[in-house]
Design a protein around this nucleic acid. Sequence first.
DNA 1: ACAATAGTGTCTCTTAGACAATATCGA
DNA 2: TCGATATTGTCTAAGAGACACTATTGT
Lengths: 225, 225
Amino acid sequence: MSEIICTVDVVLLTLLDNRLHVALLKRDHAPFAGVLALPGGYIHAEQDADTRDAAMRTLREKTGIASPYLEQLATFAGPGRDPRGWSISVAYYALVPSALIDRAAHPEVALIAVDELKGLPFDHRQIVDAALQRVRNKSSYSSLPVHLCGDTFTLPQLQGIYETILGEAINKVSFRRKIDELDILEAVAGQMETGKAHRPAQLYRLKKHFRQHLALTDRGLNSTA
Amino acid sequence: MSEIICTVDVVLLTLLDNRLHVALLKRDHAPFAGVLALPGGYIHAEQDADTRDAAMRTLREKTGIASPYLEQLATFAGPGRDPRGWSISVAYYALVPSALIDRAAHPEVALIAVDELKGLPFDHRQIVDAALQRVRNKSSYSSLPVHLCGDTFTLPQLQGIYETILGEAINKVSFRRKIDELDILEAVAGQMETGKAHRPAQLYRLKKHFRQHLALTDRGLNSTA
DNA sequence: ACAATAGTGTCTCTTAGACAATATCGA
DNA sequence: TCGATATTGTCTAAGAGACACTATTGT
């Protein structure tokens, strides 16, 4: 039983040009050397405190991203998914603002639009699909998408992000009501998004209490589901 | 990396005396020999097609249960959870009608009320808690609890099961409206639950299409959440 | 002033829950 | 007939979406 290959894989999602993108890396070694794949790697029992830790380390080492929103997705396993043998991959998904991805320091990180993915090795396609399904589902009733925003953002911007993820238009009044009920944002005093030929929008940021790990407790953006 | 211990654990839930119970087994071997613990065991790379398969096999071998509702819960891992070393446990949860548990053939299966659990080894307490949270959460918006029923049941019985799981009373009219909308039950013609000193209730059963794997698609019992 | 988008007030429609009336059994 | 619970009809209240009006900017 100890011949099982234990790995983690991370589906790192971000927004670019108003579309969801996944971070992929060209694999250094066989199998699938040179092919774009999810950032992942072996669990290091000597140093990883758990699989989340392993996923965090992997992400840091391969993309330089420090403390993203990171949540366990599911575990994929079996004899066929990795040609080296029976393997387990504990998959995580991360949401980060694209500004946090330092592409100068890590030019090897490829950001691919999720609807243009093709030819992923292993069962990575299945893992990405599971992550997308999870994020879409969870976004419909939680504040999850705020993790794709930068420090400050306007409500129209945030609504656009929800619409991008959910793939459908949202009623403006309802959206604002829900966000208001969630009570997780605070206006940045006096600051406005400016420069456009129309009324500027109020800037908001996450309340201090929610800056980090917002994941566990949120509920209730949209009960449409 | 190959010294990692790879296991599965199953949280088998059932209803007994109107209360949720977990199936536990006295461990045969060290560590924690003789202590009640979740049914679980090593993944057998030679025979298991994936972790679900391993969980199914474990459940069959240890409790005799053949094809329960079984879904992946989460993966628990780390250096401290098992005294033998760095370990991974892919946890599943199962829901079965208590009638399916053949306690004559498997007298070693202990069914413990979930609110009376104590002294579980490893991190099994944490795993059980995660399963309960998942089941309660999912029950509030899906038909999940029907898996705890036998072949036929009445609507008042089913409502009672929901109330047991959710821990609160449900509006009768709303409950029936929702169940009706889900459109997953069919009346068993002419059959009534009988014998009580009051109007008998109509018996229902799952529509054929939903007999097995109902898990993946269901939605929308209760949007209260 | 005009175009364009932000922000808000209000109406309607859908849906969940409360209440209550009717139905059907055993005693 | 009475007590008990099943089943169904209807009213009310809460919430989501549609619509439209006001606000504020650059041109």
